[in-house]
């Protein structure tokens, strides 16, 4: 935590932490406490007066079917994104680890979607699935399937999931490849001598040994799907059609900046904060016990 010897106490350390602390107080702590305060206010329809209402905003949310639906939609969205991107990444990493030559070349070719901004990823996918011009609707036409995510809520959801998962494959792939490469060669060789073929070996040796990474990625992907996919949804569907792709973060933004419901938006912010805090706690508890092999 601290060096055995340190510099004598003076005003210097305070000056050194000052910039970070000032930014934290002004742009993090103060707004967060404001959010908490505002979550207990209700403004009248004309914005003329506000009333302190304790937990009424939360009560309204709890009884709001839309909010409830949004909550579950967010969970389903996150699970699908995490599952899709992690399984593709695991699959590819398993093969990349196998090839002696070129593993690093494949890595280079697979990691760069990480660098693409979520909103750009959304733009790319919305273009590919453009109902009149896109390549995929054109191909789907041949099998008699009509694609229009502007009208069909399920199709819209599928599209944002695909775009979000696509962007995250790179990240998951990197971590899976690193985890697999850190498994001692002797363990793999021992199981080969025991007579396990490549598939059995992957299932019984590699998979259990990368399970700490799987858990770690699960948390990271959940956080990603919850918070970092705003740009994708904003570009692809704007939460529509008819709210079919509105997730929690999008709803906070929409209710606050478009609907101008300050109290309700703040209450949703507070709920999101609680979610982030619990995810961070899970992540840190995991980091403590991480070293498994």
């Amino acid at each position: 935590m601290l060096k055995r010897v340190h510099f004598p106490t003076s005003v210097l350390p305070y000056l050194l932490v000052a910039p970070q602390i000032i930014v934290t107080l002004i742009f993090f702590i103060w707004p967060a406490s404001q959010a908490m305060y505002q979550s207990m206010l209700i403004e009248d329809a004309f914005g003329l007066s506000t009333e302190f209402v304790w937990f009424e905003n939360f009560q309204i949310l709890a009884e709001d079917k839309h909010y409830y639906d949004t909550f579950w939609r967010t969970i389903i969205f996150s699970v699908c994104v995490a599952f899709l991107s992690m399984s593709v990444a695991l699959f590819l990493a398993g093969f990349a680890e196998r090839v002696v030559r070129g593993a690093m070349t494949y890595r280079t070719m697979l990691i760069w979607p990480y660098a693409v901004a979520p909103v750009l990823a959304g733009a790319l996918w919305v273009f590919m699935f453009n109902p009149t011009l896109g390549i995929f609707p054109y191909l789907l036409e041949f099998i008699g399937y009509n694609w229009n995510h502007y009208l069909n809520g399920h199709q819209a959801m599928l599209l944002v999931i695909l775009a979000a998962a696509w962007k995250q494959v790179a990240y998951n792939f990197l971590f899976y490849l690193a985890a697999m490469q850190s498994i001692p060669k002797s363990v793999i060789e021992a199981s080969a001598i025991d007579g396990a073929g490549p598939v059995l070996r992957f299932r019984t040796i590699v998979l259990p040994l990368v399970s700490p990474t799987t858990f770690f990625l699960l948390v990271i992907n959940a956080v990603y799907a919850f918070f970092d996919t705003f740009g994708i949804i904003h570009a692809v569907t704007q939460g529509g059609p008819a709210g079919a792709t509105t997730i929690l973060v999008y709803k906070v933004f929409n209710d606050g900046f478009v609907g101008l419901d300050l109290g309700g938006s703040a209450a949703q912010s507070v709920i999101l904060m609680i979610l982030v805090i619990s995810m961070t706690v899970i992540q840190f508890r995991y980091v403590e016990k991480k070293v498994d092999y």
């Binding site: 702590i29 505002q38 982030v276």
Partner: peptide, 23 residues
């Protein structure tokens, strides 16, 4: 100070959009 900095980890911009904008 250390814990104050730690807290920022739990407050991504997405969860405090409105009040940060106001500041």
């Amino acid at each position: 100070f250390f814990w104050l900095i730690f807290i920022t980890l739990m407050l991504p911009v997405e969860v405090r959009i409105m009040p940060t904008f106001q500041v």
